[in-house]
Computed example of a mutant assay.
Amino acid sequence: MYQVHQEGSEDRWEVEALYDLCFAPGREALSSYRLRDDAAPIAQLCLVARDSDAILAGAIRFWPIAVGDHKALLLGPIAVHPTRQGEGLGGILIRESLGAARALGWQRVVLVGDEPYYGKFGFEVLEGLEMPPPTNPQRVLGLALVPDAWRDVRGVVRSGSA
């Protein structure tokens, strides 16, 4: 049983340690981090999951980005502690945060990841988006939170503001 709640300032260092554990301390050198450099995460969508002993088991963050005149969310990073993987916690964090994003009026989400995993949540490979290099275009995935939200959205992905 997990309690999922919005990430607070008291969670920050534990969340950063979890991301370092799951992705290695050099994770911030990844190209998708260039989109996070000058933006604050969307606090209402950044969630943590703690077990019954209040131990951090997982975390997810979202960032504002833009493609042309279109606002979007960048999902990531998402991490589940290695001892808790395979329990469905990543799916819980994704579904809860996407539901919250819809409720807040966001229309589209993009991430860089594996389609076989994220496809279970409706993400598909996006054509025509230019992520910071080097990003494999086959790993650029999108989800429309409202019908046709990605229709005719093309161009350079850049950091945005909420």
Rank of each mutant, 00 (worst) to 15 (best):
Y33N: 12
K71F: 02
I55H: 14
A59L: 00
W63Y: 15
L75C: 09
L47W: 04
R84Q: 15
A29V: 02
H81P: 03
I42Q: 14
A39E: 09
Q85A: 08
L45W: 03
S32N: 02
A29R: 14
L74F: 03
C46F: 01
V80K: 04
D11I: 05
D69W: 00
D38H: 11
D69A: 11
A17Q: 08
L45S: 07
V15E: 12
A40G: 06
E16V: 14
A72G: 15
V80P: 08
H70F: 00
H70T: 12
P25H: 10
A54K: 13
D37Y: 01
C22E: 11
Y33R: 11
I65V: 15
P82G: 09
H81L: 03
A79M: 08
I60S: 04
G58R: 03
A29Q: 15
I78D: 06
L73A: 07
E10N: 11
S52M: 01
E28N: 02
C22Y: 08
R50I: 04
E16R: 12
R50S: 07
C46T: 09
T83I: 01
D20E: 14
V15R: 13
V67I: 15
L74R: 02
I60H: 01
L73H: 06
D69G: 13
R84C: 14
I55L: 12
S32T: 14
Q85D: 05
D69H: 08
P82W: 11
V48Y: 08
P77Y: 04
A40S: 11
G68S: 01
G58V: 13
R84N: 10
A72E: 09
C46H: 04
P41D: 09
E28K: 13
L47H: 06
H70E: 13
D38F: 03
A29D: 13
